[in-house]
């Protein structure tokens, strides 16, 4: 077994879960992982499955609301659960009012944009936050020439 970095291990697990779904059993997972590892070996004839390049699917999460404990933990927790990579973070607290912006790479997540959006907005609701999620491209388009 070659040395694998975290990103590769994550991909392996996701691939196994995607292929097997509810039929996952010990041997079945082993089989899928074995095949995937074979593909990663140098000189392997099977080309690796196309994956979205990191940075191609970046979203901006903006949340507003009254400041309270656990806001950052709640938002980052749900993003971590969904395997989303937080690249940048900035926040401002004006008196009681809390604004946070997260730049998040969702290309390594097994969830779609809509699913990530739904999860984060739901978490925001429980924390009393208004959450807006947009692809990063719209900001680059409007604010960069």
């Amino acid at each position: 077994m070659p040395d694998l970095n975290e990103q590769q291990i994550r991909k392996l697990v996701e691939e196994a879960v995607n292929q097997l779904g509810s039929n996952a059993s010990g041997t079945a997972v082993e089989q899928v992982v074995h095949e995937a590892v074979q593909r990663m070996q140098p000189g392997s004839v099977t080309p690796p499955p196309p994956v979205q390049a990191p940075g191609q699917n970046r979203i901006i999460v903006t949340a507003f609301g009254k400041n309270r404990t656990g806001i950052l933990a709640g938002l980052t927790g749900v993003l971590a659960e969904a395997n989303c990579d937080i690249l940048d973070l900035s926040q401002k607290i004006l008196q009681e009012f809390f604004t946070i912006m997260l730049l998040v790479d969702i290309s390594s997540s097994s969830l779609s944009f809509d699913q990530v959006k739904e999860k984060v907005v739901q978490t925001g609701d429980t924390l009393g936050l208004k959450v807006i999620i947009q692809h990063e491209d719209i900001f680059n388009t409007m604010h960069r020439v």
Binding site: T99, L103, I132, Q134
Partner: peptide
């Protein structure tokens, strides 16, 4: 250049 918080807030406004 990364997008600044102010620019994001302007878009949302």
């Amino acid at each position: 250049m990364p997008i600044a918080l102010e620019e994001i807030l302007e878009t949302i406004r």
